[in-house]
């Protein structure tokens, strides 16, 4: 299993993601945003950070990076794509996921560990988790307040595409949404950082169940 981790100018979580996926038995490979091919990877992660300095809006410029055409094609072919934090913002700007991420309601940059509930196991990120399972995951964002029009929200709810919700909404996100998936479940975006909850030293290993699901790696007993 080879995971391509896309590096934009300003990404800063790419090595954390590589470290975390290798911890669960996959191989991580950094991909440059200027390349128009993904090579032979089996899954793609858009990591956290500040792609292109978040200029204009987070993800607004990154969506035009050459690699994004290949990511869209990969997603269209059913390949697993995960956007974490800034990567989630890029996926919404690119139209691979609906809605947008707006400034946090309290206008504070939030850097803390929060409880997140699994509300759908029908996605590549949550297939190995249990419904209603609560995970302790770090968040680290200024623009993590998920927003969408009422029609989109109805659709997301009806199709079980809200995969993760905050137990105690930290940022004003609509319907407590922390993560959503595409209609086929193979593209997932979330604001919390599962890769930062992948080792006891980090204070939580709750991200591992998500990463194992994403990589199709069964949990070791």
């Amino acid at each position: 299993m080879k995971v391509g981790v896309v590096v934009f100018p300003g990404s800063n979580c790419e090595h954390d993601v590589v470290e975390a996926v290798e911890r669960v038995g996959a191989t991580g490979e950094l991909l440059w945003h200027g390349d128009s091919s993904l090579g032979d990877v089996d899954a793609v992660v858009l990591p956290g950070g500040f792609a292109h300095g978040d200029y204009l809006r987070p993800g607004a410029i990154a969506r035009f990076s050459p690699v994004m055409g290949a990511v869209a094609k990969f997603a269209d072919d059913g390949g697993p794509v995960l956007g974490i934090c800034n990567g989630f913002q890029v996926l919404t700007e690119a139209g691979l996921l609906p809605g947008a991420l707006q400034k946090n309601a309290g206008l504070k940059f939030l850097c803390r560990t929060v409880d997140v509930r699994v509300d759908s196991t029908d996605s590549v990120l949550t297939s190995g988790a249990a419904r209603a399972q609560v995970l302790r995951l770090p968040i680290n964002h200024f623009e993590g307040n998920y927003t969408c029009d009422p029609h989109t929200l109805d659709e997301l709810r009806a199709e079980g595409r809200v995969v993760l919700r905050y137990v105690d909404n930290p940022n004003g996100a609509t319907d407590d949404i922390a993560g959503i998936c595409s209609s086929r479940g193979n593209v997932v975006g979330l604001m919390p950082h599962p890769e930062r909850a992948s080792d006891d030293l980090l204070g939580s290993t709750d991200g591992l169940v998500l990463l194992r699901s994403f990589l199709g790696v069964p949990e070791r007993v």
């Binding site: 607004a60 809605g99 947008a100 927003t147 969408c148 029009d149």
Partner: peptide, 8 residues
């Protein structure tokens, strides 16, 4: 296409 995000 670029200067605004029509969602918000």
């Amino acid at each position: 296409k670029f200067l605004t995000n029509p969602v918000i």
